[in-house]
Design a protein around this nucleic acid. Sequence first.
DNA 1: CGCTATTAGATTGTATACAATCTAATTTGA
DNA 2: TCAAATTAGATTGTATACAATCTAATAGCG
Lengths: 141, 141
Amino acid sequence: MNPLHLSNQLCFPFYAISKEISKRYRTILAPFNLTYPQYLVMLVLWEQDRIPLKAIGRRLQLDSGTLTPLLNKLIQSGYIEKARNELDERELVIKLTDAGHSLREQAASIPLQIQRVLGLTDDEYKRYKGMLDELSQKLNM
Amino acid sequence: MNPLHLSNQLCFPFYAISKEISKRYRTILAPFNLTYPQYLVMLVLWEQDRIPLKAIGRRLQLDSGTLTPLLNKLIQSGYIEKARNELDERELVIKLTDAGHSLREQAASIPLQIQRVLGLTDDEYKRYKGMLDELSQKLNM
DNA sequence: CGCTATTAGATTGTATACAATCTAATTTGA
DNA sequence: TCAAATTAGATTGTATACAATCTAATAGCG
């Protein structure tokens, strides 16, 4: 067994599958004018609105260098807006606009669409999800 | 169960773990002046030298828009060189340089180092690998 | 043979990622 | 209290990704 052989690498299928999933999201998210990372930001904001950039970054494991331009795109698309926390002016508070709120209902069909293009049964989906959550744990993420 | 909740997404842990793995590779690959995608190209070439860009792209699922600049970096680093197939001048043949060949021996320690920073046992490693290969299959990749 | 279709790479434009650095605001400790 | 340390974001520079388009070379076919 050659550990330098591509087919023996754990990391490559992660890399490849992750790219493949993003690609399949691209088609589904295009009508909403969203990319996959932008969609993730929207998911976070639909869970909790009016949170600082920092909190979004913690949740998605992204830093300001990535989030600043990404949030600006979401502003351009009309889904969010920026404000400053008056108690701590360093803090940039991200708020959903009306369009951002109503997008939530239109986006409700996305998870099912994704499951369909991935072609996984509920059981498979759950099994893979369990494995990934376990691995996240082991990696201290 | 809210399917729009981040914690119920299969795709997010893929995205997050994939980024995390790349980050851990970064430290290990830095002494070799390689990024993770560049390392993948080297793995492919160590398996088979003198193959066209197209073949590397098929293997890594990357197109010329990604590979052209990436290969130019590897040329700058002195690990590969470009040539044209004389029988088909469209084809760009990628060849390892002497430095590229000898890098292979120096890189032999990388897989173990990665396994160490990931903190996985052999069994865990194999189990995850099996699941991912299975999923790749299901996704027709 | 010569024209059309196809193919391989390169290029352009857009969108992440992330390290490193910078600025402004807040916190902390002598 | 007030200078030093810390923190939140923004900015800069480098490196992917990938769709779309372009160019040059080859293949296919009437």
